[in-house]
Nucleic acid binder design. Sequence first.
DNA 1: CTATAATGGTTGCAAGTGAAACTAATCAAG
DNA 2: CTTGATTAGTTTCACTTGCAACCATTATAG
Lengths: 159, 159
Amino acid sequence: MLRKDKKSITFQLEKFFPYLVRIYYRAVSQSVSSIYEKDYDLTVSEWRAMAVLGNSKDPLSAGEIVTRSSIDKVKVSRAIAGLTKAGYLERRVDEGDRRKVALQLTRSGHYVFEELVEKVQELENKLLDGFSPEEKELLISFMARVRSNAEGLDKSQDD
Amino acid sequence: MLRKDKKSITFQLEKFFPYLVRIYYRAVSQSVSSIYEKDYDLTVSEWRAMAVLGNSKDPLSAGEIVTRSSIDKVKVSRAIAGLTKAGYLERRVDEGDRRKVALQLTRSGHYVFEELVEKVQELENKLLDGFSPEEKELLISFMARVRSNAEGLDKSQDD
DNA sequence: CTATAATGGTTGCAAGTGAAACTAATCAAG
DNA sequence: CTTGATTAGTTTCACTTGCAACCATTATAG
C-alpha cells in the first residue's frame, strides 16, 4: 500500500465539527420554522420580533427589538412591516422622540403569539425527547462554551 | 401583584432552545467561514465540494458530490462552476455517460485544499478548546440525538 | 427504430438578504 | 437660531438562494 501522497490527507466532512453543527442547526431550525411558516405564514424574524414583543408589558421601539433578539436592523424593520400588515402589530410614533416608534402586539397578535408559544414549546420538548434535565443543561452549557470560544477567536482576528 | 393576564405567558427567547442553537451555529459558522471566505475567497459550498473531492482518489460526478456533502444540486453546480473558474477543479465529460461530468481537483486545487484542511482543523481545535475528548464526544452525540428527534418530527408531518 | 420517460446537470426567475446610502428627527456647539 | 454630528428607522441595490423549468443524454416501451 505504498502511496506517493505528500501527506495522505484524510479529511472527512462528515466528521468535521462545524459541519455537524450545521446539520444539527438545520434540522432544528427546519422543524421549528415549519411551525410559524406553514401554520402562521410568519418569517423567522417576524416570529422573533413577536416573541420579544409578546413578552414585554410595555411597548418597545424597533431598536430595542434589535438588541433583544439579535436580529439586524433591516430584518426587524421588515418584520415590523409584515406584522403590522398582518394586523398583529400596532405602531405608534413615540411622541417623546418622534424618530422612534412604539410597537406593541394587537389583540390578535397576542392571541397568535400565545398559540405559537404553546406549539413551539411543545416542539422544544420533542426535540429534547429522551434528554434528562441534566443532559439538557449540559448540552446548553456545551453550546455556550463553544460559542464563547468562537467569539474569542473572532475578536482576536479583528486586531 | 395582581395581573389580569389570562395566562401570564413567559416566553424568553434567550432561553428558547432553537434560538440557542441558532446562536451557537452562527458563531461556529462565522468563525469557520471566515477562513475560506476571507483567506481563499471560497463560498461554503465551494469549500464543501472541495472537501469531498479532495478526499476522493477518483474523480466524482456532480451527483456524487450532492449525496456526499448534503449540499443541493444547484449549489453544487454553482460551486463546480466557481471552483473551475478559479482553476481548482477540472471537469471532463464522462465518456461512458455523456450526461455526467467527471470532476477532480487540479494540482493547485489540491494545494489549496491541503492548506485549508490544516487551518480548518486548527480552528476546530480552538472551537473545542477546554473540552475533554469525552465531552467532545458527548456534545456530538447530543447533537445527533436532537437531530434524529427533529428528523423524526419532520417525517411524521409529511404524512 | 420512434416515442416516452427518466436522469444529470444548468439556468431563469422571483424572493430573501445585508451593507451602505438615505430620510427624518434630535442633540450639541458656536 | 444655524451648522454639524448622532440616532432611529427605511429603502436601495447588488448578491445569494432555491424552486421549477429547462436542455442534453440515456433508458425503456411499443
